[in-house]
């Protein structure tokens, strides 16, 4: 145990935690998206899926606890790294340019807290229904349709999911690097993998509010 704590004290140890928890959270987002896409099949299918999840009982809470712990560790480790990095350059450059850093890498520290804030809103909106104006417990299909019918609610979801995709674009690429899976043989594949899943998350999740706003599903 001491060895693990010693490892965590270093930046690579913290990054290891960020990477592993990041992958767990990514897999959840991916599964969550495929589950929700059943909305295109119809109300019965989506509500049956929701009922199935609710009936998992203890298993549901075990998974929720696991994901919550992953989220806490992810945020905790990255917060510690953020403050370490903040202190590493007390005097800034007058002129500093970058060659490689792309938008997704540069915005990680903004997209992260924004996604966390969205997550809280999302739970209050569709899980507890306390910020939903027309919430019917158990009728997920109705809640989604009536929720997304409000244009600015859909706007928040669209924006948040674009940020989420952007976060994954850098995160998924970095995941391989941090866990040591970096090799010239499959580095290109690594970039394609990250880009593909980033866009998949954006397209999949944004399709739902857009479909409601456009009246494709009612």
């Amino acid at each position: 145990m001491n060895r693990l704590l010693d490892a965590y004290r270093t930046s690579i140890g913290k990054k290891f935690v960020v990477a592993v928890t990041g992958v767990i959270l990514f897999l959840f987002v991916l599964g969550h998206m495929f589950g929700n896409l059943q909305i295109f099949v119809g109300a019965e299918r989506l509500n049956a899926y929701a009922a199935f999840l609710q009936n998992l009982g203890e298993l549901l809470w075990a998974v929720r606890t696991f994901l919550f712990l992953a989220l806490v560790l992810h945020v905790m480790a990255i917060t510690q790294l953020f403050f370490q990095n903040l202190g590493a350059r007390p005097i800034k450059y007058r002129v500093k340019k970058t060659r490689e850093t792309d938008l997704s890498a540069r915005t990680m520290i903004y997209s992260g807290p924004a996604i966390l804030a969205f997550l809280i809103y999302h739970l209050l909106h569709f899980t507890y229904g306390s910020v939903h104006s027309d919430f019917i417990h158990g009728d997920v299909y109705h809640n989604v349709i009536s929720g997304f019918a409000i244009w600015w609610v859909s706007g928040i979801y669209i924006l948040a999911n674009i940020l989420l995709g952007l976060h994954f674009k850098h995160g998924l690429w970095s995941w391989f690097q941090t866990l040591g899976f970096a090799h010239p043989k499959y580095n290109k594949w690594r970039t394609n993998f990250a880009t593909f899943f980033a866009y998949l998350i954006i397209v999949g999740n944004v399709s739902m509010p857009v479909a409601v706003l456009a009246g494709w599903i009612q």
Partner: peptide, 12 residues
């Protein structure tokens, strides 16, 4: 020193 966030500026 700070922590790596995979910006790739060092290599550049």
């Amino acid at each position: 020193f700070g922590a790596c966030t995979n910006y790739r500026e060092c290599e550049a």
